[in-house]
Nucleic acid binder design. Structure first.
Length: 439
RNA sequence: GCGAUAUUGGUGAAGUGGUUAACACGCUGGUUUGUGGCACCAGUACGCAAGGGUUCGAUUCCCUUAUAUCGCCCCA
């Protein structure tokens, strides 16, 4: 047997329906915020992902799917969405467009060469957005509120927004130095991982799982105190706008994000996915004011966020959120003899073209087994085709819920179904403003 | 890259160094010759991830590999 590659998943059945629903919500919300859908290549030049990420992390060396194509060009399966969007922005000179800022959203598979674990696959699906060309803090707030809206509409409740500011390049460097100075005398108290973080990426020390709660860490310098005046004002604006939007947040100085290209606002959406009560980031993002120029474009600001579908669905499941997923069918056609079967083939097609979800027997089952099948399919109606009745141009249709049977002229069948199929598909608890169903 | 645990039919699983691998669900058929969902009866793993080893004998012990789950590193 050939099995799927490590860290990949087959998605089908009810799970696939949940995915499609979530994707529909994403599309609708993105559209209202006026973000244009963008599809960029699944693979790009390796250099695209390696530049900008910097030398500090393992990402470049061991966590991307790299390969040489037949022309000996080094290619990489995209590990995230931002780089491709920024590349496209630069390549197509969108910074010259009349409409600014440029706003995009994406939704697609990404590839990371990692060991799978909870909420972490090698092939993953992420959606996200990018705004390029504006440094207005209102854009930061918009991006955050957009993500918050998607989560809210999906029914996710236990999500906390952690937000922080890294300031501009100067502030960030000052803070980095302060951290180094602070931890240096206590180096021997740190865990082994932190010792290497100290050398490679001191900001990450704050994320330590071993002794992140210790006194040493509590007294560590805070980013906020190292923001210069301008950066501080900018951050306050972002928070003010979030207040206007009535979006609750927690200022969390431990949010630093891993990569160097972030400036100013950074944020993460945390959900309590595990039974253990520990939290997991289901999305995050921030400003990246150097990435565009790093990749060969103009000095332009970017803001974006990305969110993992797998973790999002995990969180929805964990919270028991009800997604409006349709699992039943309208009608199941049963038959016994060949003449009836032929009519079933015809009738199924006819009714499907008229908008009904129709299924028919295709397994040569006994009539009894056909009824069982109709149950399993949760058919709202069944028709047992009967030669004698067909000669009279009529069928007996049975409502599986009320058990009532009725003789109906075949000509009147569509009308009958229209009348009798109630629209009780689902209830959703998104309040009066809910427009996302029934279309 | 590192670590822990696991891998038994269509599914959930129990179990043991030794004749026929529990139980349940499902599925198929029958009781009921074209109206099910209930009930009862019957059938349903030539095999316990793959390969190698130890042994008179292994699904059970050992090794290797693969896969899965969870964690570490990293986190875009």
């Amino acid at each position: 047997m050939i099995s799927k590659p490590k860290g990949t998943k087959d998605i089908y059945g009810t799970v696939a329906k949940r995915w499609k629903y979530v994707e529909k919500v994403i599309d609708e919300v993105m559209e209202k915020y006026h973000y244009g859908y963008i599809r960029t290549p699944l693979f790009e030049s390796t250099e695209l992902f390696h530049r900008g990420v910097g030398e500090t992390s393992d990402i470049v060396t061991k966590e991307t799917y790299d390969f040489l194509d037949r022309g000996e060009r080094s290619m990489t399966l995209r590990p995230e969405g931002t780089a491709g969007v920024v590349r496209s922005y630069i390549e197509d000179k969108m910074y010259g467009d009349a409409i600014q800022p440029v706003k995009f959203y994406y939704n697609g598979t990404m590839y990371r060469y990692e060991r799978p674990q909870a909420g972490r696959e090698r092939e993953l699906t992420q959606f996200g957005c990018e705004v390029l060309g504006s440094d207005d803090p209102a854009v930061d707030a918009e991006v955050i509120s957009l993500a918050a809206q998607i989560y809210r509409i999906l029914g996710l409740k236990n999500v906390t927004i952690h937000i922080n500011s890294l300031g501009d390049a100067d502030s960030r460097n000052n803070y980095r130095q302060a951290l180094v100075k602070y931890f240096e005398p206590h180096l021997d108290l740190l865990c082994d991982d932190c010792k290497s973080r100290f050398a490679k990426n001191p900001l990450r020390i704050l994320d330590c799982k071993v002794d992140g709660e210790s006194e040493l860490f509590e007294n560590a310098p805070k980013m906020v105190d190292y923001l210069n005046e301008e950066s501080k004002k900018r951050f306050e604006k972002v928070l003010e706008y979030l207040d206007i939007l009535e979006i609750p947040y927690v200022v969390d100085s431990k949010i630093v994000r891993g990569l160097d290209y972030y400036n100013h606002t950074v944020f993460e959406f945390e959900s309590d996915i595990n039974e253990t009560g520990s939290t997991m980031a289901i999305g995050g993002g921030g400003c990246y004011n150097q990435l565009v120029s790093e990749l060969g474009g103009p000095e332009v600001c970017g803001v974006g966020f990305g969110s993992g579908m797998d973790r999002l669905l995990l969180a929805l499941e964990h919270e028991g959120a009800q997604l409006p997923v349709k699992e039943d069918i309208d009608l199941y056609l049963l038959y016994v003899n060949d003449e009836e079967k032929k009519y079933a083939i015809y009738l199924a097609q006819e009714l499907r073209m008229n908008g009904f979800i129709v299924e028919m027997e295709n397994m040569k089952r006994s009539l009894k087994a056909q009824f069982k099948q109709a149950d399993r399919l949760k058919a709202k109606f069944t028709i047992v085709l009967n030669s004698a009745e067909l000669d009279e141009d009529e069928v007996t249709i049975k409502n599986t819920r009320t058990k009532e049977e009725e003789k109906v002229q075949i000509d009147a069948l569509i009308y009958y179904l229209d009348e009798n199929l109630e629209d009780d598909d689902f209830m959703c608890d998104c309040g009066d403003e809910c427009h996302h169903h029934g279309e």
